[in-house]
Design a protein around this nucleic acid. Sequence first.
DNA 1: ATGACTAACGGGATATTTGCCCGATGTCCA
DNA 2: TGGACATCGGGCAAATATCCCGTTAGTCAT
Lengths: 222, 222
Amino acid sequence: MSDKSIQILLVDDHAIVREGYRSLLQKQPNISVIADARDAAEAYQNYKTFQPDVVIMDISMPGQSGLEAISRIRQYDGQARILVFSMHQNPSFALQAIRAGALGYITKSSDPALLIHGIYQVYENKLSLSPDVAQALALEKLGQDKARLDDLTVREFEILRLLLEAKNNQQIADILNISPKTVSNSHYIIKRKLEVNSDIELTRLAIRMKLLNLRDLIDEAE
Amino acid sequence: MSDKSIQILLVDDHAIVREGYRSLLQKQPNISVIADARDAAEAYQNYKTFQPDVVIMDISMPGQSGLEAISRIRQYDGQARILVFSMHQNPSFALQAIRAGALGYITKSSDPALLIHGIYQVYENKLSLSPDVAQALALEKLGQDKARLDDLTVREFEILRLLLEAKNNQQIADILNISPKTVSNSHYIIKRKLEVNSDIELTRLAIRMKLLNLRDLIDEAE
DNA sequence: ATGACTAACGGGATATTTGCCCGATGTCCA
DNA sequence: TGGACATCGGGCAAATATCCCGTTAGTCAT
């Protein structure tokens, strides 16, 4: 390995970040950046052209996402070694990336040494995850959101829908012909079951669960 | 200007991005990076210590935001020249940054040449905006909701950001070093200014306004 | 049909938040 | 230097949230 350095293809849409990689990686004797790309299509092309040992890939890019690029590259070369370097700490991103065929997932907020380490790991076909992501993934793996949603009773679900339409207790009480107190109690129970402790969290969860139609929200905006 | 280079303080929580700046800026004969910082507090300290000519600042950082840092620095030195380099294309962010005292706002997706150009502009006390943001700001004059968003003061905007992260009053108070009561009051004022009457509506509005990253929310779901 | 279970409803009690007002202070600018 | 604003928070009544409780009614298996 000392006679032949690891050939890297860099994929990131931010020039400043590509610059950062280059600068950082140049200091590594066994690593050399042989090409870069600023989007998914270019990444795929350059993978075929340069046949790098390891691809370092950002997954948040305009147009086709990095995930798509990972799939394409893996389809072309089942042995491709891809390390995702992302700003997202969200373990769902990591999970998706791994599913798409990445071997590593390191967050941009990690110490650069972790990136270097990840490159070597991936080069040797070993999985490499940022500690923060690994931990989050582990915690999350015990199926959560959906299961929790299923804990709601039908009535609670109904009340939740109305709450999400930004109706207040009295309005909901009128609609359902129950006391505002019951609405308030249900609101509380819903939050407890869904393990959130504010309406803001509740709304975010609802959007993730697609209870609140994102399209509607987007189209509302101008 | 050729006999004395522009002294830069870099503020960004991502090491790789700081590396990118350094590498990029080192190629500029008239610019030298004399210090960096990874959060608001460190930025303030280092500003006082190093008295840089220009501060390059990311505004999305854990804990105290870049906006806070801008205010603090400007309070200490009314002549401070600050260039915000942000991933947010949303013109509201730019507006708030300018209000807080920044002289420039360049998006991270811009060509690096724009950053360099921005540095020179800001160094000469000239306003510098990314073309994309400038255009969006111009277009936005017609937006209904955005107009309302722009009614928020810098402080309110900052508190809104933290609220949207589902932080409670006490947490926000701790971060900003103010009383929970003030947070609560601001929360109320924000809702009144934005003409919503619940946190659920507030969150929906925030999503429409793209203050809350839609992509994150969508991708979070499985 | 009866006991066990659970959903739905809502009262009570207390803690916390909300909604709105106020004044104090600081800053910036004409 | 006076007025417009931003920031910070106290006060206080009304509303909600939180948690516990009991009642009613429907389901279901024995």
